[in-house]
Simulated scan of single mutants.
Amino acid sequence: MLSVLKRSVFISYRRQFPYPFYCAYSTISSDIYKEKLLKKAKEQGFDSIEQLKSHLQKEIEKQRIEFNKNDPLKELDKVKQSNLGQDKTKLRAPFDKDLNKTPFKTLSSYVDIDKLKSLNSQQVEFIWRARWSTKDDSLVAVVPAKIFINMHKIAKTNPCFVLPLPRKIEGETTKNGDKESMELHYVQWNFPDKYTSHCILTSLAEYKLHNQFARPHTVIEFHSELSNQLNMVLMNGYVEKDCNVTLADSQLLLLNIQRFYGAMGTDSKIAKERLNLLKHFNQGSKDFNIDKLIELAQSMEN
């Protein structure tokens, strides 16, 4: 596995103190306090300090038993789980590897291809967008064939990547507003047949936990059956409902997939930097840099 997957899922910047802290302990003799302890003992009806200590020991033991009725570790786990859902992608159970895998869907699973071939590109685009218009969690687009061919070529040789997604840190603010960290998401391309391509996204945390059985939060399909005749590739996708990734999150990740996989060109300086970083990741090169990834993903240049 590439070295980057060993990195922390969340990248944040915090100031570290240059020197450790030390605690100072007193060495004053307890004899100074004997008189005060004896006075305290007599005020509570005891004749000696030893009787006071014995009484206090019983009280301490009683409080300890009462305290141990609640397991602080279990309470801590509850707090961690509740905080996990605020800023991070929800970690779900892996796929059951013993389940029979259903065949993947092609363009004919959604529309009648023969009928579409009798229409022009504008009519096909209208029908395709209308096909998904009633689904709130869907992603839909029509990609020019030339652009997709370039993306497909790059994805074939660089099928994996990671992309950052901004997340607000609960309870931490700066002068400009809430403090942000970056959550990494794992991108993987599959090519089940000649005309179908899948781009699958899952949080890096979940991928590290379940590997190939990790559940994706977003699945994007590209269908190129009409690319020769109508010069278009039809795209559809969906966002899982039981995860903490929103449709807007997936749209932002999809935008950066286009940027790093050459959909917006490969000739500009920043486009070449993105492509080089993509190649470094897939080659396991030491030149792959998380800070550079975040910078290029957040840049508005294409």
Rank of each mutant, 00 (worst) to 15 (best):
E170H: 13
E295C: 06
T218Q: 06
L296M: 11
K101C: 00
E180N: 15
F104V: 11
E172H: 07
L184P: 01
V9Y: 02
S138M: 03
A271W: 01
L163E: 04
Q57L: 10
L252D: 01
K69C: 06
K286N: 13
M1I: 13
L139V: 09
L119Q: 09
K194C: 01
R14V: 14
Q86L: 14
V162K: 00
V187P: 03
K156R: 15
L116G: 02
Q123G: 00
G85M: 04
M151E: 08
D267R: 15
F17K: 15
D77H: 13
D287N: 15
F148G: 02
E35L: 09
S299K: 11
K40N: 11
P103R: 05
I147Q: 06
D291V: 05
R92F: 04
M264G: 08
D98H: 14
R129H: 12
N176S: 14
M182Y: 15
C160G: 04
I290F: 12
L226I: 11
P103W: 06
T27C: 06
L293N: 04
V4F: 12
S227A: 14
E273K: 15
N150I: 08
V233Y: 00
N244S: 14
C243V: 15
S8H: 13
D193G: 10
F95L: 13
S30P: 10
V239C: 10
E125Y: 07
G237E: 00
E221G: 02
E301L: 15
Q51A: 06
I60C: 04
T196R: 09
N211I: 07
T246M: 04
D136N: 12
R259V: 01
K156I: 06
E66C: 03
K272H: 07
L5R: 06
M300N: 13
L52Q: 03
V233E: 04
L163G: 05
D96E: 09
P166W: 02
R259C: 03
G262V: 02
V245Q: 08
F161T: 03
Q123M: 05
A93W: 04
N211K: 14
E240Q: 15
I149S: 11
I127V: 09
K179I: 04
E180W: 07
